[in-house]
Simulated assay, not measured.
Amino acid sequence: MDAHAVKAILFDLDNTLIETSRAGGGAIRKTSELLKTTLALDDNTISSICDKFKQKLLQESFDPSAGRSIDEVRVGHWEESIQEAVGSCSPASLAAQCYYLWKNSRLEDLSLSTEICNLLKQLRGRYKLLLLTNGEAQTQREKVKAVGCEEFFDAIVIGGEHAEQKPFLSIFALCFSMLKVEAQDCIIVGDSLDTDIQGGFNAKVRATVWISSAGGALLDGSVTPDYTIPTVLDLPQILQQLK
Rank of each mutant, 00 (worst) to 15 (best):
K56I: 15
P236D: 06
G200L: 06
E136P: 01
V75M: 10
S170Q: 14
W210Y: 05
L179T: 08
A146F: 07
P225C: 14
A146W: 03
D191Y: 05
E84H: 11
N44I: 13
K180H: 13
Y127W: 03
C98Q: 08
C117R: 07
H77K: 07
L10V: 05
S88H: 12
T37R: 13
S212L: 14
N44D: 15
V144Y: 04
C186F: 01
I158P: 01
G24E: 03
E108C: 12
L35V: 08
K103I: 09
I9T: 07
S65E: 15
F11L: 06
K36G: 12
G199I: 04
Q59M: 15
A23E: 01
G216D: 01
T224E: 15
E72F: 03
R74P: 03
Q240C: 10
I229V: 09
G76Q: 08
S65F: 10
L239R: 00
G87P: 07
G135R: 00
K143Y: 05
L10M: 03
L218Q: 03
L13A: 12
R206A: 11
D2P: 05
L235K: 00
L94W: 04
F53W: 12
S81D: 06
A137D: 13
S113N: 13
Q83P: 05
N104L: 15
K243V: 13
L39N: 01
T20W: 02
D51Y: 14
R106F: 06
T45P: 04
V157P: 08
R124M: 11
N44W: 10
C117D: 13
L39P: 00
D185A: 02
V157K: 10
A23Q: 00
L39Q: 02
F172T: 07
G159V: 07
T20Q: 10
V75A: 03
E151V: 04
R124G: 15
K128Q: 14
I158R: 10
T231I: 12
V232M: 06
S105L: 08
M178P: 00
F201I: 15
R126Q: 15
S192T: 05
I156A: 13
T16R: 04
K166T: 07
V232I: 08
G26W: 12
Q184C: 09
G190N: 00
S61F: 10
S81K: 04
Q97V: 09
R74L: 02
S81M: 10
V147Y: 00
G199Q: 02
L130Q: 14
E72R: 11
L94N: 06
R141F: 01
K30A: 08
V147K: 00
G159H: 04
K103P: 05
R206N: 14
D42E: 06
C89E: 14
Q122R: 12
T37L: 10
G76M: 08
C149S: 14
E161Y: 02
L94G: 03
L235W: 00
V209M: 04
I28G: 05
T208A: 11
G221H: 06
F168A: 07
Q198I: 09
I229D: 06
